[in-house]
Design a protein around this nucleic acid. Structure first.
Lengths: 157, 157
DNA sequence: CGATGTAAGTCTTGAAACAAGACTGAGTCA
DNA sequence: TGACTCAGTCTTGTTTCAAGACTTACATCG
């Protein structure tokens, strides 16, 4: 399979990865969540090649994850902001960050903490069940085909 | 910045991506979560080049995400199983799957559903706060440097 | 006026990663 | 004996990436 045919897969993970699975894309989004909005700020913070950044931003805009808006007319200058759809990626990113914290932080601890403004405490994200509200253990999950499942040979989820 | 120097970043997301940010890696892990354990099953389900699969599996084993164990002596045959560390990626993967479901499932609905065995219901994962137990809105999170933060020019989270 | 600076890119070039498929080796099945 | 399975390695051509030079349009400084 080619990477660029991922979007045609029936699997939701594959479709998500077609959008954010490219190299650098999640790091670009990390910057966006840290309120970075301008081309050169992204480029400087990430040390990414301009061309790659331009491609990633254009792709994310095309997919509706970021919105590109003019913030100045003369000369035209643009900024990139997360859309609602983009904000929807926060749980995934935070889960990865906390996994990184758990397994790769030095003995001093994590480099960045997240505070829940609502309750005022630093927190880790906990995956809970939308049905019963309890924390979910990976071993307590089983999968079964949903309404959008196609008859197929390949797995898809 | 080079992609292969990601692991040296202080940012936990970068470190996580150094492990699972390669093309195909998350799809390999999806298969692992769907109980796939053998080389050729991974290869067939994913349609991935053998060489790339061999590399990805080796890398995941090296990082302790998968464990490679002999399940047959003659000829030697190995299987790849998720470790505890690997299971720790489930929240991130599920968050991505649910994001894909929300934005890219056809009108029929998601191709795969997840059932919480503990309560018996199909569910979506909800990101909740480890401190107060409430669901967390991305806008209600603010970040601040943690104990492992280095003085630095670049952002890191 | 001319020089310098900034923002948001495009172009070029060489290096690395990927895709596809042939090949290998040890053992099994008919 | 010949075909088949599993878990890879090897080869070849294509695509993507990294790094940096170049471009365009405007702003400011002297």
């Amino acid at each position: 399979m080619r990477w660029d045919s991922l979007a045609d897969e029936q699997c939701s993970l594959a479709r998500a990865l077609a959008v954010i699975g490219d190299r650098w894309t999640l790091l670009v989004l990390r910057e966006a969540f840290l309120k970075v909005r301008r081309f050169d700020d992204f480029r400087e913070n990430l040390g990414i090649a301009r061309q790659v950044l331009a491609e990633r931003l254009a792709h994310l805009v095309e997919e509706g994850v970021l919105a590109k808006t003019l913030y100045q007319d003369n000369p035209p200058r643009y900024e990139y902001r997360l859309t609602e759809k983009g904000l929807g990626l926060y749980p995934a990113i935070l889960a990865l960050v906390h996994w990184g914290d758990a397994h790769y932080a030095g003995r001093k601890g994590p480099p960045l903490l997240h505070r829940h403004k609502t309750c005022g405490h630093d927190f880790r994200s906990v995956m809970t069940c939308s049905a019963c509200g309890e924390a979910v253990d990976p071993r307590a999950v089983e999968t079964h085909p949903g309404p959008g499942a196609a008859r197929r040979k390949r797995n898809g989820g």
